[in-house]
Simulated assay, not measured.
Amino acid sequence: MSSVSPQTVLGRLRAVAWDDLEPAFAHGRSRALLMREHMRRAALWARVCGAEERWPFFDVTEYLAPAFEPAPEVAAELEEYVRRIGTPSLRRVCRGAVRWAAARSEGRVEPPELPELPDPYEPILLMFERGGGYSIEEFIDLYGVMIPYGTLDSNARAAPFLSPAHSTLDVLDALDADADGPVTYYAKISDGFPGDSPRGILRRRPVGRDTETLDEAFTRNLRWEPTEYFRRHALGHNEVDHVRITEFEAAAFIEATTKGLGASRRPAHGL
Rank of each mutant, 00 (worst) to 15 (best):
E129M: 13
E129K: 10
E129Y: 06
E129S: 13
G131Q: 06
G131R: 04
G132F: 04
G133W: 00
Y134M: 03
Y134I: 00
S135T: 14
S135Q: 13
I136L: 15
E137M: 12
E137F: 12
E138A: 14
E138Y: 12
E138I: 11
I140S: 07
I140L: 14
I140G: 08
I140P: 07
I140R: 05
I140M: 14
D141A: 09
L142H: 03
L142M: 08
L142G: 08
Y143Q: 09
Y143S: 10
G144L: 03
G144Y: 02
V145E: 14
P148G: 14
P148W: 07
Y149G: 06
Y149P: 06
Y149V: 03
G150E: 01
G150D: 04
T151W: 05
T151E: 07
D153P: 02
D153L: 10
D153G: 12
S154P: 02
N155C: 15
N155R: 15
A156G: 10
R157A: 15
R157I: 00
R157E: 13
R157K: 13
A158Q: 06
A158T: 01
A158I: 00
A159H: 06
A159C: 05
P160K: 02
P160L: 02
P160W: 01
P160A: 06
F161D: 00
L162N: 00
S163I: 04
S163L: 11
P164W: 01
A165R: 08
A165V: 07
H166Q: 12
H166T: 10
S167H: 09
T168P: 00
T168Q: 01
L169G: 12
L169Q: 15
D170H: 11
V171S: 01
V171T: 02
L172K: 09
L172S: 07
L172A: 11
D173W: 11
D173V: 13
D173M: 12
L175I: 09
L175T: 05
L175R: 05
